[in-house]
Design a protein around this nucleic acid. Structure first.
Lengths: 339, 339
DNA sequence: TTGTACGCGTTATCAC
DNA sequence: GTGATAACGCGTACAA
């Protein structure tokens, strides 16, 4: 077992001073050709790499991005991570991923842990419980400390920061309009409780789209799901209750469960009931029937968020502060679950 | 904007020495009651937290685990991350996640980046390209440097390290036996190319199970898929070619595509053709018909891997070296895609 | 051309 | 009881 090499060891080995070694490796012109060669050869031979921790301490920069997300099982979040990773690595940054499990306490804890020097900036999507409480002082705290923060997807207005979101209202309208265009008359929505911003906004888009097309909005056509534990039965009951000819689900799990509920009721998708989802994941693609959906471009959101963060990290500190909000366009992917 | 507080600043503010502050905060008995109170009050008020980077440098420990996985879109890997996160956070460790994108070069690069002081140990699943090349010297290198490494899922014998794997052969046999027990006579397997260890082992299990039951093994009943890009058409052609009454797929994407291929052929699942998958993900659960599958317990694998790693990190260095291999049992989850 | 000294933030050891 | 000093590994301004 051969432990990592340090400048000090090289210096001792070659019988020169530490700074000579350091300078040689950084190709400083102060150092003579021959010593430089010698040192570089030695370093290469024994595969010297500077210690990141020491560099971080010295430069007050870790070249690491902290990502905090509510859960990783939603395919959407994994695509976001993938996008973040992609541009981060490209620019020489590492990515620390922490899961809040949708818990306020875990979110706070994770952020404290990371904020104490481990990272240069945050990319975060707010936990469900945090939105429910409406308590954002841990977020505001980090930006006050001068640590850049980019919020994505589940964003909150109260926090002054860069944001990467999609236009949920517009996306939802797109979905509902699509259903209407295909002849739907009685459209139900399967959404989340209102304190989840995206659920609220998508419900709003649904409502607006109906109104703009001269439809009535019936509260019985709106299902708001609180937790993911037994969505099957909730959705099944909801579908049985009314005579829908189309359903709009705010995520792909809901959409898949909706299809099942329709079939359990003895109806067919898309012939009797059309179904449209939100977020384009593996499930939507592989499902039978494959699911028409509003695509959220998770990896692009991740890329944008990373770009935004790194831009802020690398700009000179005397530039004036300004917060951007990037709205990633949604798309409509038509597949088998609509006519 | 208020930057982070350091010991030095507290010392200056309170007009005492740095070491007095440090000791006070660590409740050292050498310090007088009143100064200690004063310092602690001040630190609490301004929310002092020691700088992780400085601690890492001092302690030669980062309390961070590096996880390198081939891809994150496979639901299996996300559950593993989730498991790792879980026990790591519990024991005060952070998790850095890096994606190799199944590329040898990215795997090497990521590992080098992390190995230079950023982390205390690795949890890794080998990239496809790496297995193909059979070049593991970057892995061997890190263990030679004394950095603990735990391999999971796609493990390789050549590397001396702890391992967390499932018994792929046994799992596959379980799947095939299940099909045979349910009356299947002509079973096809949809697997990956042989250099992916799990694909090879599961194919082996398939073969053994058939032989043990007195069936012939027909090479035309074995499909080995190289890349995920157009599995649909490959699987469709494979299914049309033969007259299978059951299919065993080595992951859930293959299984879902198999169901579709069967239906395209005009047959029904499970009535005409039974289908069984491997890995229990969202897709298998939500699919219609829901998919019978061999469960891989990804999050348990992650937990075991993290436990193994942390155990090694925290044991005294003079203990003798030994490598454990933990085999996580597979389970059979029967759902609608089998009779 | 090379080496010395300092600082990043922390803790441990030793001196006062 | 309190404070100065060294050390972790590195880079750099400055001195020789």
């Amino acid at each position: 077992m051969r432990p990592k090499l340090t400048l000090k060891q090289i210096a001792k080995e070659l019988d020169v001073s530490i700074s000579t070694v350091s300078k040689s490796l950084r190709d400083s012109p102060e150092i003579g050709e021959d010593t430089r060669q010698k040192v570089q050869a030695f370093a290469k031979l024994y595969n010297y790499k500077p210690n990141n921790i020491a560099l971080s301490l010295k430069n007050r920069k870790t070249k690491t991005i902290g990502v905090v997300i509510p859960e990783i099982v939603h395919h959407f979040f994994t695509t976001v991570i993938s996008g973040i990773e992609h541009v981060a690595n490209e620019k020489g940054y590492s990515v620390i991923v922490c899961l809040s499990d949708n818990s306020f306490d875990k979110e706070v804890l994770n952020m404290e842990m990371l904020a104490n020097g481990s990272i240069d900036g945050f990319i975060l999507s707010v936990a469900k419980e945090t939105m429910q409480k409406g308590d954002y002082h841990h977020l505001i705290e980090v930006v006050n400390q001068g640590m850049p923060l980019v919020l994505f997807d589940r964003s909150v207005e109260e926090v002054p920061s860069d944001k990467v979101i999609i236009d949920d209202v517009k996306g939802a309208k797109k979905a509902v309009q699509c259903l209407i265009d295909k002849g739907a008359k009685n459209i139900g929505i399967i959404s989340t409780v209102d304190y989840i911003s995206v659920g609220k906004l998508r419900t709003q888009g649904y409502t607006e789209a109906l109104q703009e097309n001269g439809f009535n909005v019936n509260q019985k056509s709106i299902l708001k799901i609180e937790n993911m534990d037994n969505i099957e039965s909730e959705i099944s009951a909801f579908v049985k209750e009314s005579d829908f000819d189309a359903l709009f689900a705010v995520n792909e799990h809901f959409a898949a469960a909706a299809v099942r509920a329709v079939r359990d009721k003895g109806q067919k998708v898309p012939d009797d009931v059309q179904v449209i989802g939100f977020t384009d994941g593996e499930l939507s693609k592989r499902f039978i029937p494959s699911l028409t959906t509003i695509s959220q471009h998770g990896s692009r959101m991740g890329e944008e968020a990373a770009r935004l963060l790194i831009e802020k990290l690398e700009k000179s500190p005397n530039e004036e502060e300004s917060y951007k909000t990037i709205i990633v366009e949604t798309g409509l992917i038509e597949r088998e679950s609509t006519k």
